[in-house]
């Protein structure tokens, strides 16, 4: 089946999961998704747990503390919320692992170019920011002051904006020279 079919099925599934409120059903579906994922299941579950852990711990912990203080029951709400969030995240990561997202999101050559170029540029720019951070650390003999941190962050922002403008121009020229825009009206 095509990537777009799986994307549509995923969108329907996430909306459907939002209408399910029984923790038992949410747990059964989570188990079914993990079984269907096969060998990917342990990695999917681990990545999903890592992705949701911090926020869900804060929200759940806060709610448990508040409920205990007010003398209200909390277990059902916390279990339901965490199961739902975990199920939705596992579904998303499973989709990302199973299909080519660029093909799934493409509604034509233009959107495919957009997705491919954006993802590649993200990887390039992330590397640039990491290089700047490492360079800032290696140059700082003493712990940097707040002002130094701001200057470094501002430099990163300027370099990113300059890089973005230069990359946009060179990409446009490269695509034009290869005839990408020739068949456009």
């Amino acid at each position: 089946m095509s990537p777009r079919f799986w994307l549509a099925a995923y969108l329907l599934a996430v909306v459907a999961v939002s209408f399910l409120h029984e923790p038992l059903w949410l747990a059964i579906i989570l188990l079914a998704v993990l079984l269907a994922a096969g060998r990917l299941a342990p990695r999917l579950l681990w990545r999903a747990l890592l992705a949701v852990l911090l926020v869900n711990l804060m929200v759940s912990g806060g709610y448990v503390a508040l409920s205990l203080w007010q003398g209200n029951p909390w277990a059902l709400t916390v279990i339901r919320l965490n199961l739902r969030v975990l199920l939705l995240t596992v579904l998303t990561l499973w989709l990302a692992a199973r299909i080519d997202l660029v093909r799934a999101l493409s509604v034509g050559p233009a959107s495919r170019f957009l997705a491919v170029v954006a993802i590649n540029q993200i990887l390039l720019m992330r590397r640039l920011v990491q290089d700047y951070r490492h360079a800032f650390r290696s140059r700082s003999v003493q712990p940097p002051r707040l002002r130094d941190h701001y200057r470094s962050a501002a430099r990163q922002g300027v370099v990113l904006m300059d890089k973005a403008q230069a990359q946009a121009e060179s990409l446009s020229q490269g695509m034009r020279s290869r005839g990408v825009f020739d068949d456009r009206p």
Partner: peptide
Amino acid sequence: IPRLAVLTALAFVLTTVM
């Protein structure tokens, strides 16, 4: 297309600037 793609990448990476 290339400009929007690069702008998207810029927006993404700006969210990693601390």
